[in-house]
Design a protein around this nucleic acid. Sequence first.
DNA 1: CTGTTAGCGCGTTCAG
DNA 2: CTGAACGCGCTAACAG
Lengths: 347, 347
Amino acid sequence: MNSKINSRVRLEDLARALKLSIATVSRAMSDSSRVKPETKQRVLSKAKQMGYRSNQIAKSLSSGKTNVLGVIIPRYDEPFFIEVCRGIDYYVRKHDYRILINSSRNSFKYEKENVLAFERGTVDGVAMCFTHETNSYEHVEELIDRKMPLVLFDNISHKIDGAGHVKIDDFSSAVKAVEILIKHKNNSIGYIGGTSKKSVFNQRFDGFVEAHKKHHQSFKTRHVLNCKSYHQEHEFYEVFNFLSKLQDVPNAFFCSTDNYAILCIKALTKLGYKVPQDIEVIGFGNLHYSNMFTPELTCVSQPSFKMGEKVAEMLLNKIDKGFFISNTDQNSEIVLPTKLVYRDTTR
Amino acid sequence: MNSKINSRVRLEDLARALKLSIATVSRAMSDSSRVKPETKQRVLSKAKQMGYRSNQIAKSLSSGKTNVLGVIIPRYDEPFFIEVCRGIDYYVRKHDYRILINSSRNSFKYEKENVLAFERGTVDGVAMCFTHETNSYEHVEELIDRKMPLVLFDNISHKIDGAGHVKIDDFSSAVKAVEILIKHKNNSIGYIGGTSKKSVFNQRFDGFVEAHKKHHQSFKTRHVLNCKSYHQEHEFYEVFNFLSKLQDVPNAFFCSTDNYAILCIKALTKLGYKVPQDIEVIGFGNLHYSNMFTPELTCVSQPSFKMGEKVAEMLLNKIDKGFFISNTDQNSEIVLPTKLVYRDTTR
DNA sequence: CTGTTAGCGCGTTCAG
DNA sequence: CTGAACGCGCTAACAG
C-alpha cells in the first residue's frame, strides 16, 4: 500500500484531535450554517495546523459531482482549439470547475475512446468538437442516453438531439468575405481550403459559391483547392504546387483558414506576385499570429475565446438545471457573430 | 441498439443479473486469473449487454490511484507549452494515463492555487513549469513533503530537492547562436528578449554576454531590450519603439524567443531594413509557425515535444518506483540538446 | 448546533 | 474458483 495514503490527514484525524464527530468537521469545512461559529473556527485552524487537504475523489464519490468538465478537441496544435479551451477554462474556473482536455489526434477512433473515457464518471459534462473523420454519431448519442450533459462546438454537420450547439455562421461569413473580393472588381477568385470532409470547410466553400451566384459571377473549379495534408510543410508544398501549375492565377483568394491564407501568400510571394497589389487574400479565423505576418492578414474574425465561454456557460447550465433541455429549446443552439477585419492583404 | 439506460449500471447490478457475487464480477472485469474462463465470458458479455462502465472515481478511491497526471503551465497561448503538453500526453497515453492541464495565467497566485488543487488527490503526479513571477518555492516543497511525485521543466531557476528536472541548456544554446552572428562579422549585435524575471531569458542573455566575452567583442546596453508586455500588440509596439529610437541599429539581433524575432523582423522591415541583407536575426524555440514567415526564421531549435515525453517518462518512473528518487540521482535531471536551424534570416 | 448511521462503487483481504 | 465483509474518505439523512 502507498505510504502517502497513510500519511494523509483526514476528516477523521481532525475529528479525533478536536474531540468532535466527523460530520461536524465536515460541515465546518464546507462552511455550513448549521455549525457554531466558534467550533467552525476551531476546526479551520486545526485543519490549517495539521495541513488538511480534502480528498476530492472521496468527495466526488460521495456527492456524485466531480467539478470537472471533459473537453474533446480534434488536436492540440491548432490555436483555434486552444483558444476555445482557454475560453471554457476562463469561464468555468469562476464556478469552481476545471477542465480535462482530451485530443482526438484527428482520428475518429481516438474520439470514440475519449468519449468512452468520459463515461467512466470522471466528468460532470462534456464539450466536444468532431474530427473531420467523424461521420457517425452513436458514440455521442450514447453519451446523451447516459444523461451526460453535452455541448458540441465548431464543426457541426448536423444537430444531435439533446446536445447543445455553439458555432458561428460559416456560410454567411464566407459569403460576406467573398463579396468584398467581388466588390473590389476581382473577376477571378480562387478558393483554398482544407479537407472537404470537414463540415465547416464545406460551409465556407458553399458561401464562396453563393457569393458568386448572388453577384452573377462565375469561378473556375481549377481555382479551387481542398488540401489533404495535415503537416505544415506538406501543406505548403500542396498549395505551392497548386498555384505554380495554374496558367491563369486568380486576382484574389478566399481561404478557409488563416493558415491556408498565410501559406497561400507565402507561395504567391515565392512565385513573384505581390499581395495585395497583384492579388488579394482573405483568411478565416483571426488567430493570434495572423497580425504578426507582413503584410498583416485580412480575415474573417472568429470569436474563439468567446465561443469557449459560451460552450462553458451552456454546459454548466445543463448541469445545473438538470440535464434535459430539449433540442428545440432556444438555449440549445448559439450562433456567434463574426466580423471582417481589414488589414493589409486586401486593397 | 441498447434500450435506454436509466441509471448507471454497477458491478452489483451485473452480479445480481448473473447470480454471482460482486467480488467475482470485479475479478472478471479486471481479467483476474482467479476466475473460471467460462464465467469470465458470461460476465463480459453481460457487461456489454447492460452497457456497464466502471466508475473511475470509485476505483480511484479504493485503489488510491487516479491514473491522471497534473500539468501546470504558465499559460495556454504559448505554443511551446502546448507542444510540451502534447509530448506528455503522447507518452502517458501509452501507459493508460491522462493529463489534466492547469494554466497559471502568468500569475504566481494562480500557480499556487493550481498546486493546491493537485494536493486534493485528483492526480498521481505533477509536471510543472514556473511562471516568471515565481520566486519562492514553498508551494512545491510542500507538494514534495506530501510525497507527490513532481517533475519541473523549462523555466528552472534553481533545483528543488526531490523533484525531477527537464530542461535545455539555454546558456550554451545562446552562446552558440550568438557566435554564429559574430563569425558572420557582425561587430554590433543587439538582444531582444522577454522579462528579466524569467530565468530562461536570463540564461539566454547570459549566453549572449558570454559569446561576446569569448570573442573579445563588446555590445552596447542600449542595444538590449527586455520586453515587459504580455500581449502581441503591445509587444510589437515596445519592440518597434525600441528600434526606431536607436541612432545606431546593430547589424544583427539575437532574440530570446521566436516570437520576439518575428516582431523584430516585422519592425525592422517597417523601418526600411532588409533581413537578412542589412540585418541578421536569430530566434529561439522553433515553433511550428516559425517557418511560415517570409523570410523563414533562423533559430535555435528547442525539442518541445521531446521535452514533454521526457517529463512524462520521468514522472511515471517516479510514480512506479516509489516516489523517492534522490536529487543527486542521475535520473533527476535531464538536459536536452538543442540545434541551430539555418533558414533565411541569416546570411 | 452536534452526533450517529448509512451509503457512494469498487478493490481486496480472508474464508471456504 | 467464488463469496462475505470491510475499507477508501467523505456527504447526507435522521435524530436528538
